[in-house]
Design a protein around this nucleic acid. Structure first.
Lengths: 138, 138
DNA sequence: CTTGACCTTCCATTGACTGGAAGCCCCATG
DNA sequence: CATGGGGCTTCCAGTCAATGGAAGGTCAAG
């Protein structure tokens, strides 16, 4: 299989697959003409990586998960620990985003959104200070 | 005011403030010795930027918001549009993260997390294909 | 005079790609 | 046999928003 077919099957851009080879996640052999020749096992690894990335695992976590996947003597605790750490990161991100969402939703609701200049969003971002005026004391 | 004091007051690293000057968000004048001399207006702009960034606005949105803040003839609709677009982006990110969270939480709950190799997390990431075996037909 | 904190610029790095240029390779058609 | 087009290769640069570090200038205290 050449890179184009693998890309289509794994649902990853060819560029990304080359990048994954570059950083050592996969090591497909080469044909005489220099083309990468992907085996089924490379294909499976790429599909694995695509799923792990879709779940938001970092590349380094993907590397670790791939190694565990290929290690028949792994302890499931090792996998679970990585997943739990990642879940904790996700929870933090969601909380941060929801805090932004709450604040911003409130501000948007308070903003008339018409042609007039009065805007509680800007007032809140300015938080008490006025924008620069000519003659303002610095 | 020198950069150190401004950094402390605005809650931004000095590096970030220099970067903001670099990309044209602020333009503090210089003292004879080359040091940046921050006026109160620069300080207020930085505080504005810090708050907008904390709400997750991109730098380019911050630039637009700052311009609107300083434009007395602005229409609040312009501000609101930026905020609403940003809210839509936030909603998408939250939904994506929650989908990851749901999937991963389920998988973690199904994983024994002990010394045994059986792991539904890896099975799911592999999704039907086995990791490479010696002698596997490629 | 020296020490140390603070300031300056410039360059490199982060993460995970993505875009584009320049140049082979292969197959099908004329 | 030429040629055209698509696919493949490498390499370099850029993204976003900073951040780290080196090398060196400035200033106030002791």
């Amino acid at each position: 299989m050449n890179i184009g077919e693998v890309a289509a099957r794994a649902g990853l851009p060819a560029k990304t697959i080359r990048y994954y080879e570059d950083i050592g996640l996969i090591t497909p052999p080469r044909d005489a003409n220099g083309y990468r020749r992907f085996r089924e096992s490379d294909m499976h690894q790429l599909a694995f990586l695509a799923r792990a990335r879709a779940l938001g695992f970092t590349i380094e976590n993907c590397r670790a998960l791939l190694a565990l996947w290929q290690d028949k003597a792994r302890a499931s605790a090792d996998v679970r620990r990585i997943a739990e750490d990642h879940l904790a990161q996700i929870a933090i991100k969601i909380a941060d985003l929801q805090a932004m969402q709450d604040t911003l939703t409130h501000l948007v609701d308070c903003c008339a959104g018409d042609e007039r200049p009065d805007c509680p969003i800007l007032v809140s971002l300015g938080a008490g200070s006025a924008p620069h005026k000519d003659g303002q004391i610095d």
